[in-house]
Design a protein around this nucleic acid. Structure first.
Lengths: 239, 239
DNA sequence: GGGATGCTTCGGTGGCGCCCGTAGCATGGG
DNA sequence: CCCATGCTACGGGCGCCACCGAAGCATCCC
């Protein structure tokens, strides 16, 4: 059996916190330099260089030279999907010991973030829930579908509904913080892009977190009926 | 960030050939004893025991005691999905060195095998292709859908079409040997079960491979138009 | 050209973990 | 009751790898 050892090699490349931190920083689909990734992982540039070559060799990263910088990005959306899956698997484990403390940064991530090319977090799950409740989309572990009502709704929002060969372009993705599905796939990507274009949310630099603007709060309430039970992100779990 | 290190821990549990071999043996959804898994991985029982406790702690396996045996199985279908994803990612890498030699066992696996609860391999990809060509299903990277014609077709085969809340219960799954999608999800599982019930194929003991019976060859030709370009599995790639 | 910046290679240190044999605990059969 | 079987701790040997500092190469700015 040839494939098993190849799988182990790939998995081993993911079995190191520093490397996972780097990949996590690239989960928003952008490309970062080796120096930035070193800072993210909290290791010396020389160590980061080693990690990056290993990830490169494992086929998880792609690199592009620009002047004296080397920009690294995920090799493909499939890599992001596998990472999502591993995240869900890891989060599924019974809480390790006394619940780890949750920083403000975690709180922001739980509220709204990007998941490679689409939205995730409490906000995204709420949006998906609203669309399901209104019969605009259907979601199951095996797939998703956009109804006619849903197509009308998205057209009203100015979301360019992607045209796939067949019908399906709507994929569920298990949210690691909420443990419930949100909207992914081509449709999720288009919706995410539109929200950013509308100025409803902005990327937080050097993070996957998203900041919802006042206009976004208004728009989300009108379009999705989300009332944003706004828990201040200064909450920090005791213990 | 709490989740990154948890992900690394899970991935590290997968980063060892012996453990991957064990998980691979469980990919058909059955439960095996620690001794059997040790043989599969080619390590001493004592070593296997350590691996198994680590996989257990990582939440990748579930165990059930029966008398003096301990039966291990994958903790959930999600684990199988992540493994599939990693397999596809690993296979995507440019061929390592001079193409590794391919044994008869690999050939059988490439032809037909189970992928947790559904069919995979050249045969399964052919079945999916046939159904797509006839407009019975639609497949895209984001999802799949069963058409009315497809529902009729499956009913004729005696496949109990699973009834999900919404429509979708049809999921594509990237075949690691063919690098093209086959049919997974609830629908893929139902189809696989029916093929086994019909006696079209049989499980090969201690392997994920499937053996197509003469009745199966006939049935597959009639139902799917598959002509089974039967390459004898004794072929072994030169070099 | 001189110097700064970004990144990599090299060498050395320390630690984690894979592996096994031996020994010990539980279960089931004779 | 005793032995065989299945599996799990324990201890030691060994190799791989994460980490860093120093040095070297490439690129860009002044």
């Amino acid at each position: 059996m040839v494939s098993t050892s190849a799988l182990a090699e790939t998995a081993a490349a993911l079995g190191e916190p520093a490397r996972v931190a780097m990949l996590g920083a690239l989960m928003d689909g952008r490309a970062l330099t080796a120096g930035e990734l070193a800072a993210v992982a909290g290791v010396a540039p020389t160590t980061a260089s080693g990690h990056l070559s290993r990830l490169l060799e494992a086929g998880l990263l792609a690199v592009e030279r620009q002047g004296r910088h080397r920009y690294h990005r995920l090799a493909s959306p499939e890599v992001a999907r596998v990472l999502e899956g591993l995240m869900a698997l890891s989060a599924a484990r019974p809480a390790p010991r006394r619940a780890l403390r949750t920083g403000p940064r975690d709180a922001a991530l739980r509220e709204a973030r990007t998941c490679y090319d689409h939205l995730a977090g409490r906000l995204a799950v709420g949006m998906a829930d609203a669309m399901v409740a209104r019969g605009q989309i259907q979601l199951s572990p095996d797939g998703g579908a956009l109804t006619d009502a849903g197509a009308d709704f998205l057209q009203g929002l100015g979301v360019p509904v992607p045209v796939a060969r067949g019908r399906p372009f709507c994929r569920p993705c298990l949210d690691w913080s909420e443990r419930r599905p949100h909207l992914a796939g081509a449709l999720g990507a288009a919706l995410c892009l539109r929200c950013l274009d509308l100025g409803w949310m902005r990327r937080v630099p050097a993070s996957r977190a998203l900041d919802v603007t006042p206009a976004g709060r208004l728009g989300l309430r009108q379009a999705f009926g989300l009332d944003r039970a706004d828990q201040s992100s200064t909450i920090s779990a005791a213990r």
